[in-house]
Nucleic acid binder design. Sequence first.
DNA 1: GAGCACTGC
Length: 764
Amino acid sequence: MADQKGTKRSSVESDAQGSKRIKTDDKYNPYLAHLNMDGANDGFKSPLDEMERHTTTALEAAKAEDSDVNPWTGKPHSENYFKILKTRRDLPVSKQRAEFLELYHKTQILVFVGETGSGKTTQIPQYVLYDELPHQTGKLIACTQPRRVAAMSVAQRVANELDVELGQEVGYSIRFENRTGPKTLLKYMTDGQLLRESMHDPNMSRYSCIILDEAHERTLATDILMALLKEIAQRRSDLKIIVMSATLDAQKFQSYFSLGKEDPPAPLLAVPGRTHPVEIFYTPEPERDYVEAAVRTVLQIHAVEPEGDILLFLTGEEEIEDACRRISLEVDDMVRESDAGPLAIYPLYGTLPPHQQQKIFDKAPEPFRKGGRPGRKCIVATNIAETSLTIDGIVYVVDPGFSKQKIYNPRSRVESLLVSPISKASAQQRAGRAGRTRPGKCFRLYTEKAFKKELIEQTYPEILRSNLSNTILELKKLGVEDLVHFDFMDPPAPETMMRALEELNYLACLDDDGGLTKLGSLASEFPLDPALAVMLISSPEFYCSNEILSITSLLSVPQIWIRPNNNRKRADEMKAQFAHPDGDHLTLLNAYHAYKGAEQSGEDVKKWCHEHFLSYRHLSSADNVRAQLKRIMETHEIELVSTPFNNKEYYTNIRRALLAGFFMQVAMKESSNSKIYKTVKDDQMVMIHPSTVVSSPYDWVVYNEFVLTTKQYIRTVTNIRPEWLLEIAPVYYDIDTFEKGEIKSALTRLTEKVKRRQAMKGGY
DNA sequence: GAGCACTGC
């Protein structure tokens, strides 16, 4: 029996002395090689066999690529392969392959800058593949992406380019889906996924090269990964790191990845993009009403500019729907009065169901009559069109200069969305959307002076705008002891860190010295916010872990309730069917149980959801989350139990269990005849969100989130009894820690009452 | 009596 491709099925590892030894993996036992053959070309000599790791030249690699037989599989290359190869060689990045390899051989950490259209995301990992020769070492190449769709689609593309089956030599790994296998050499994945993996493999020992793509987006996960990789690089000289980014921030990345303070910055390689020029226009004066100005601009473009589609950026659903209505009305007039061409208008935002999002890819409408004025489409979008979705054919971009951004106030511990001016980098990204297919124009609805003087260079990285309790827990799990000196590219505000540490301490995930507790370690295993994880872990003590598991899943997905503007009353009636008088958490659970019931009785669940004004998409995604969380619970032997449904404690137990995680999110009614509540300890005045089902006026409620809009609301609330607080979270509800006020007096009265009752019962 | 920028585990 032929040992397939010689050493290909074994792995070479460098040991401490640097000498090489051959290790045979059980899976690739040569005696079982026939099981792995799948039509491979026996006796085939791969051009890779003659190549030595970390010495590959562009010429050698190209030669291997040109071979009739696929060097990675031993199968003949398809016709299509050579067709794609030709287009790959035309990409801007291809001209710099030699330069890239030389630099790659010389350095451990490399910053790579490439504009859109340079081909970096698909090509660089393949250049690395031909140099790392992962089949020799058994170590993979990883390339991270901020978004799942990108990880999936790029992996598919690269699998095609390498003429292999997706999931074999090239695969991807995202939450809920791992399409990689024992043969996988190159793996695309989300940044969050790599971060999760690293929690069980702090040296990232499975990889020989890690490529962080789209690093300029500065997602929370990418920022943490950069800091971790910087540390790991010092322990593991065999690990190579490539940080890929758009141009603007290159220097910042270079100096961050310089190894010591005295060391030179990490080397940089820049590749031009392939886009068309975009002409920028500013308004001479600032605009007072940017929606109005945007609508006018779109109409103006439609009236006078040559053929080409329009993309307008606005901040949110309401604004977008409003603008679409206004444009549509005005265009009708234009068509009637001045013989304008047809204009198809599409709204685009994240919460739009996928089939409606798809519509933006429809062709622009045909002229009304042959030879008439051309038709075009106009897409009115949120930031989703800035990075996540690319629409070809856009020639005109209208940019009012605003977007909704998450901000975090550590003092009040509230995350909220605020309409804010965008950064210069965002403005450039938006303008670039006009030049994907041919030269375009971008109309900025602000002055050139405002662009130069008022816009910040970069949007603040997410790490500076978020609650970090989750992140801090992850870092503790990763063994980072000293968070103060942890080398963040942009260190978060000390107060944000303090708040996170404090919250984790109250949740008993960290002890008083900041050390990770057993509970904290367990909580970090769950892809959940710490409060949710602690609630879930504690739930067996309340005999309702099945139910809390469902509620946790439902709280981890977007709202399942659908309330169309033209059918609110009917939607509210349907929701009332699921309403539980004790609160919204229980109502969610009722809806979920009804959904599972419908599913089990063999109904058409999509139809059932539609009739009940429930989101099928979000309910089934809650089901997915539930399955994942359940697996984690089983792994760690957290019991799945329920109180019998006919037991009168069924709902009480659930309400009590909520407090095990959310005892810090409790509010008390200010006075008996009021709608105003006050949050415990923070003393913030809040109102219960009008979407609630609770009708009877409770004195004490637990809430899932704090929403800051026109007023301060608490959303998803459930009635609780204050005695439970003293019992379930005695440390937090130690009366001495409360400021003088109504809540303190209420708790004091309560404590005395409880003591009296215990004295009577206990008899001392 | 109101809303949900966008991602990710």
